[in-house]
Amino acid sequence: MDSFRKIDVDQFDEDAISDSELFEPDPRSPEEALSEARSKVAQVRTMIGRNDTQGALALVLTNPPYGPLLEEAKQITLATLLEILNSTKSSEISTTVKALDIDQRDNLMKYLYKGLELGGSGGEKDGVNCAVLLGWHEKLTEVAGTGCIVRVMSDRRVV
């Protein structure tokens, strides 16, 4: 009944606004982003080994790959981040979140919603544990406020 909502009306509009006008693409090429993501995985593993969740989280959340062209790098980054989130004790979440800067908090919120989206569509897979993500979401919202959520919704630089 509401299938008309899926019709792409923009194809009849010569002047339609395109994605490239809405946000700056990631400056990195897919290859660069991929190798950067892989090197971060290795660094994060050693950091987790040293019990440095804080540093690992900050590293992953700084300059994460975004946009439609970097799918592989985005996948790796998400998997790495979920690894960190799942291995953090729930009592430490608050202090960890407080130590992040505002960009990192906004990025973390993006990943939380992405994780919840994946977890919601097909149960638990790829290390997505919605209960853990919701725990982080609660603590992050306390620190970063609703503004952080609004920014995730408005930002088209999708991670």
């Binding site: 505002i102 906004d106 970063a144 406020g145 609703t146 503004g147 952080c148 609004v150 920014r151």
Partner: peptide, 16 residues
């Protein structure tokens, strides 16, 4: 033609 003297951005924790 010249860059701005300063651009300050506040990101608030509240609704917009």
């Amino acid at each position: 033609e010249t860059p701005a003297r300063a651009v300050h951005v506040l990101r608030s924790p509240t609704l917009p």
